[in-house]
């Protein structure tokens, strides 16, 4: 069967897998953003604390994904749960690192005048520091997202959702007529999804960056 006919026949299944792939990545990135920004906000002042947070998240990123998934199975079983946890763990480093860098990058003169004007620490964080650091934080989130699309394919091996299933079923059917079609569809699907999200990030960045930082 040629590729176009394969696509036509399996379109609904592929679409569902793609949606699930995007969903599990989006969910994980959202969770990781909440956690990572919080960690960054709590640690940025102390070089030691933020250094520790960055080192730990870098070490976690070093662990091969199949190994981390294996270690999560006894705790969380198969499927979405270990997938989301692993993806969150992998996306922490860019988000924490960029949050810390973004918060540190705010001009000390701006912090001094905020303090001198009588803003509390929390007001300064919410109204001044986070908006100014946001473009950098968002870049970290974008980098994490791109990484997760690839890693999420491997989660299919532990019954995780998404296009990895298409790729693995191609491998399982090695030698069969549709093996190549499946592998190509799964791989290309992931690439296209990642590309679409990357474009979405360009738009998101434009929409959420304070205007004063763009002029």
């Amino acid at each position: 069967m040629d590729f176009s006919r394969y696509l036509e026949r399996r379109w609904d299944d592929l679409l569902e897998q793609a949606v699930q792939h995007a969903a599990v990545v989006a969910l994980s990135v959202l969770l990781a953003t909440a956690i990572g920004v919080l960690v960054g906000v709590l640690t940025w002042r102390s070089a030691r604390a933020s250094g520790a947070a960055i080192s730990v998240s870098a070490a976690l990123l070093t662990i091969p994904s199949l190994a981390l998934l294996a270690l999560l199975i006894p705790l969380l079983g198969l499927g979405w749960a270990p997938t989301v946890v692993a993806l969150v763990v992998y996306s922490l480093l860019p988000i924490i690192r960029n949050t810390v860098a973004g918060l540190r990058g705010v001009d000390p003169a701006i912090l001094e005048s905020a303090r001198g004007m009588g803003l509390t620490g929390r007001q300064t964080m919410w109204r001044i520091q986070l908006p100014l650091a946001w473009p950098i934080i968002l870049t970290g989130v974008r980098v994490s997202t791109q990484m997760l699309f690839a890693i999420a394919t491997i989660a299919a091996y532990v019954a995780g959702p998404g296009l990895g299933n298409e790729i693995l079923s191609g491998l399982a059917g090695l030698g069969s007529a549709n093996a190549l079609n499946k592998a190509v569809a799964g791989t290309a699907g992931v690439v296209l999804l990642a590309l679409a999200f990357d474009l979405a990030f360009v738009g998101l960045r434009r929409v959420t960056t304070p205007r004063g930082l763009r002029v």
Binding site: A109, I110, S113, G116, P210
Partner: peptide, 13 residues
């Protein structure tokens, strides 16, 4: 309070 570096908030008008 006015400082030499001014410290206007760049994301605000």
């Amino acid at each position: 309070y006015v400082i030499q570096q001014i410290g206007l908030f760049p994301h605000m008008t």
